[in-house]
């Protein structure tokens, strides 16, 4: 009988704890949402800086120049695949 009583007690403690923690999650989530809506309302929009002279641009220019030389200006780069 003793273990059964203990099991019933564990059930009560367990269910109350689980409900309590998930109830806290609801409260915490709600609080975080309210605070972020008030103080951090919008996501910082990433400003697209105009790319100037990045390494990928330079690579592209080098490939285009090489194709231009090899095909005497008739070739055009449509797709670049890394092998």
């Amino acid at each position: 009988m003793q273990p059964l009583n203990e099991a019933i007690l564990i059930m009560a403690v367990g269910m109350i704890t689980v409900f309590f923690i998930l109830f806290l999650i609801v409260l915490i989530g709600d609080l975080i949402i309210r605070l972020s809506n008030k103080y951090l309302p919008e996501e910082a929009v990433a400003v697209k800086a105009k790319k100037t002279g990045t390494s990928s641009d330079n690579t592209m220019k080098a490939i285009e120049a090489a194709i231009d030389v090899i095909t005497n200006g008739r070739g055009k780069v449509t797709n670049i695949k890394k092998i």
Binding site: I28, G29, I32, I33, S36, N37, L40, E42, E43
Partner: peptide, 16 residues
């Protein structure tokens, strides 16, 4: 309440 900044909420939530 609608979430205005989901990214921030999602970062703060697991920490708290």
């Amino acid at each position: 309440h609608k979430i205005k900044n989901l990214k921030v909420v999602k970062i703060i939530f697991p920490i708290v």
